[in-house]
Computed example of a mutant assay.
Amino acid sequence: MHIPNTANTVLVLGARGRFGLAVARAFAQAGWRVLGQTRPGAVLPTEPSSIEWLAIDPYDSHALAQAAQGASVVVHALNPAYTNKAWQTQVLPMIDAAITITRALGATLMVPGNVYNFGASMPAVLRENTPQSAGTVKGQIRIAMEQRLQHSGVPSIVIRAGDFFGSGSGTWFDTVLVKNIRKGLFTYPGAPEVSRAWAYLPDLARAFVAVAQRRAALPAFEVLHFAGHRITGQRWSDVLAPIAQAQAWGKPGAALKMAQLPWPVIRIGALLVASWAALLEMRYLWFTPHALANDKLTALIGPEPHTPLAQATQAALVDLGLIPGPPVGAVRPAAQPTAQPKPIH
């Protein structure tokens, strides 16, 4: 059953963050009333102006539920620092708070998932029923988090996706891949020929909206996979090279140079820097081919929102201020269903 979006209100927990703001924008553009939770004292974005900000601590469940009365969907976009210690102490309390708030509202809880659950032995194609055997701290926590959702009794939907890019800074794309692109250098952490799952964030955000509008057709707990883009390091280089040439980055006439991330240096630094240790533990993701099969998602919503890679990359670089273009959050042309990658069977 399709639920008209004109009558719906969404509460986005952590709406000030990268994923949260992208989702808030997508719901607002789709005509929803958007309530954006942020911590008291946070600097707020100026757009979209339709977001109603709730400056309430996410652990103050009673106050937040009272302020968000009428919300039929809650999106959990809270995220701790990337260290294992932060994950061990914060991830499960955060999801518990989200469950409490959602239960009080009588709403549906939506959560972004990732591929950490499957571990280093994961197959090349990941489906919703693929066995989960994570050996890392973060992978085990993600498994526990989804189990907690499943047994909470609160209607819950996990949409699993690959690495984010687009809609600002804070992921591998901007902190590593294109960090030095103005110098004509593209840095890649893995084997250039290994294909990995990536999610252009505005596309994933639109998928959240589409699923929310069809949530009545789902069971009390559901996991869906968002295919996004399957990209190798070489493909990234091929897409970025003409952009670098057009911007005259690097030495005149020189091709975009690909460099490898110095993992041996990170291995040494991991003895002292907690965030480096956390990165090192997840190194396998850059050397293990993986893609997400989206059959269940497309059966529910139709074609997955999908912006062609060259266009998405251009927009991501605009959002980072590396090339000129519309400001962050500007409404871009809707993704074309015909541009979807071939289904994974």
Rank of each mutant, 00 (worst) to 15 (best):
Y116I: 02
K138T: 05
G269R: 05
E128V: 01
Q314M: 09
P155H: 07
W276P: 01
S169T: 05
G184F: 03
R206E: 11
R182G: 14
Q69Y: 01
P326M: 10
E128N: 04
D57K: 08
A26I: 01
A81L: 12
V91C: 09
R267W: 05
A277G: 15
S50M: 08
L322T: 04
M1S: 11
L126I: 08
S50T: 13
T102N: 13
P93W: 03
G325F: 07
A207L: 02
L285W: 00
T171F: 06
W249E: 13
T313I: 04
G17L: 04
S50W: 04
T9F: 03
V125R: 15
P303F: 03
V331Y: 04
P80T: 07
E304W: 05
V265R: 10
P58L: 06
T89K: 14
P93S: 12
L35S: 10
K138L: 06
Y116N: 12
V176T: 08
R39C: 02
V43G: 11
A104N: 12
T298P: 02
V23P: 09
V265Q: 12
G168L: 06
A97E: 11
N79K: 06
V75I: 10
G166T: 02
K251S: 10
S167P: 02
M94V: 03
P333L: 06
G119D: 09
L317H: 10
F287L: 03
G153F: 00
P326T: 02
K296D: 12
G168K: 11
T136G: 06
P343K: 07
A30H: 08
G253A: 07
L126R: 14
A81Q: 11
